[in-house]
Lab assay of single mutants.
Amino acid sequence: MSIQHFRVALIPFFAAFCLPVFAHPETLVKVKDAEDQLGARVGYIELDLNSGKILESFRPEERFPMMSTFKVLLCGAVLSRVDAGQEQLGRRIHYSQNDLVEYSPVTEKHLTDGMTVRELCSAAITMSDNTAANLLLTTIGGPKELTAFLHNMGDHVTRLDRWEPELNEAIPNDERDTTMPAAMATTLRKLLTGELLTLASRQQLIDWMEADKVAGPLLRSALPAGWFIADKSGAGERGSRGIIAALGPDGKPSRIVVIYTTGSQATMDERNRQIAEIGASLIKHW
Rank of each mutant, 00 (worst) to 15 (best):
F149M: 11
F17I: 13
L100K: 04
P25V: 12
C121H: 00
M209Q: 02
R162G: 08
F58R: 09
M66V: 13
L136R: 00
D99W: 07
A211Q: 14
M268C: 05
K53L: 13
L47W: 03
S201G: 09
D231S: 05
K252W: 09
P105R: 05
R81V: 06
E108W: 08
M184W: 01
N272I: 03
E56G: 12
G216T: 09
K252D: 09
A170D: 08
G216L: 08
T112M: 10
E61L: 13
P172V: 12
L282G: 03
E46N: 10
Q88E: 13
T112W: 15
R241E: 03
N134T: 04
V42F: 14
N130H: 00
L247E: 02
L205E: 02
T112L: 15
L219C: 04
V101C: 10
Q86N: 11
M1L: 07
R176V: 06
A280T: 11
F64E: 00
D212E: 04
G85M: 08
D177K: 01
I278V: 09
V31E: 01
P25T: 11
L47T: 09
H5E: 09
A185T: 03
K190R: 14
G226C: 09
D99Y: 07
V106S: 08
D269H: 12
G90P: 08
R176L: 08
A123G: 06
E56Y: 05
N130P: 00
L167Y: 02
P253K: 08
G154D: 09
A211K: 13
H5W: 05
L188M: 11
A211W: 08
A183W: 08
P143Y: 03
D161Q: 05
F149S: 07
L111C: 11
H24C: 09
A225S: 13
I229P: 00
G251W: 07
A215M: 03
P105Y: 05
F70A: 10
E145D: 11
L192Q: 04
F228K: 08
R59Y: 04
A77P: 01
N272L: 02
C121Q: 02
G234E: 01
D161F: 03
Q86H: 13
F13C: 10
V29I: 15
E277W: 06
A182E: 10
G141H: 07
N98A: 15
F149L: 09
T107P: 01
V257K: 00
G263S: 07
M184G: 01
L160D: 02
G236V: 02
G263V: 04
A280D: 14
E62D: 10
G154P: 04
E61V: 11
M127P: 01
G279F: 05
C75F: 05
K30A: 10
E237K: 13
L55S: 06
V31Y: 01
S221A: 13
R220D: 03
A15I: 14
N168W: 03
M115L: 13
I140C: 06
E119K: 06
F17A: 10
P12E: 06
I283N: 03
R91D: 06
S254L: 11
T139G: 12
R118A: 15
E62G: 07
D207Y: 14
R241T: 05
